[in-house]
Write a protein that binds this DNA or RNA. Structure first.
Lengths: 197, 197
DNA sequence: GTTAGCATGTAAGGAGTTACATGATTTT
DNA sequence: AAAATCATGTAACTCCTTACATGCTAAC
């Protein structure tokens, strides 16, 4: 049974797919390169690296044993195994509800170049739907119920709604781009098919 | 020893300060009226209400026992005690680092009308500093290190940076407004003082 | 009468933070 | 020589989610 939407596992496997890195550097990459909101602590990262090692998705190379160049720091560099690559592909292609969440979406989006076009579409549209639902719920609540309405609460809601609307517009652009690309490709395929016939 | 920045406790006490409500409704208010990102589950809310009751900050009135109007639903309505009001004031005036976080900031901001002006300033400026640090870290990482740079990663970073910059501009406006208010008040105080003398 | 929503809870498990602990290396 | 940062880890604790469980009431 595949663990449910696990942004951290995906982040680790996705980053290691680019190049082998050690834990300390991995943390920085997760914090800075992926759309990570809260900082990742070592108390979370290191145990997880060991767990993924146990699972057979990654392997550790301790560089301190290597007689390489002069006095290197002790580093444990992790890299993907064949199973890890499979696992990564599997996680990436699962564009279900778990992928619409705030944390998961960022990581998945950053790894879109390893994701199939149909899955990219599912993730983008799922995320958009989720945001639209949220928008509707907040708007309705502010309309129907008589609620807290001091200036600060109103300002917070205004800014929040504006931010969500902005992200929806962004997603719409991305979806358009994605569609255009798919169209180009199917157009090229058509040409090739005609060539074949 | 005061528990560290606890957005949920603050949210509950803050909402109950307006009016007594029952758990089910409280959840909606937390989700819709405060800047809450992830949904609050009952498995979190109800145990916490009991805990706050044990702490003496709130009390429960079971309306099903009241011989009031015809056949009301069973509701357990909570309201603040005197200790709860004190606790709320105490939490609100602690504008330290815990208040700069993504979750905490939203709740605190929504409750700003119950917060003193100096604390409001501390919270706003602290939040701004935190965002500026984050911005600097990401920008530096994207400059210095050669990193993932496919189009999706770049687009995610671009959008992320834009969002943070936007929030900083928003905070700057709010800080300006706050300063102007403070100035007005001190101006009025000056007049009164002159009047006194 | 049946579905949908209201309303309150419990138990188990997982996940992450915090604080602690250690030591090497680079920079000032 | 001291301070900062690199680098890895452990243990306790807290918090939250998930899934389960129950029963009432309004609407269709």
């Amino acid at each position: 049974m595949a663990r449910r939407g696990d942004a951290l596992e995906l982040a680790i496997l996705g980053l290691l797919a680019d190049a082998p890195v050690h834990g300390y550097q991995l943390r920085k990459q997760v914090d800075h390169e992926l759309g990570w909101t809260r900082l990742l602590s070592y108390g979370t990262l290191y145990p997880r690296l060991r767990q993924l090692t146990r699972d057979g998705y990654i392997v550790a190379d301790d560089t301190s044993n290597e007689p390489g160049s002069t006095s290197r720091r002790r580093r444990i560099v992790y890299r993907l195994t064949a199973e890890g690559k499979e696992r990564l592909a599997e996680l990436l292609e699962d564009g279900g509800p778990a992928a619409w969440g705030d944390d998961d979406f960022g990581v998945r989006f950053a790894l879109f170049s390893r994701t199939s076009s149909p899955t990219r579409m599912r993730v983008l549209e799922g995320r958009r739907t989720r945001l639209e639902e949220r928008l509707a719920a907040v708007q309705e609540a502010s309309r129907a119920r008589r609620e807290r309405s001091d200036s600060y609460t109103r300002e917070l809601r205004r800014y929040g709604l504006e931010s969500v609307e902005r992200e929806i517009r962004w997603l719409n652009e991305l979806i358009e781009r994605e569609r255009a690309q798919t169209f180009e490709k199917s157009f090229e395929n058509d040409k090739e098919e005609k060539h074949d016939s």
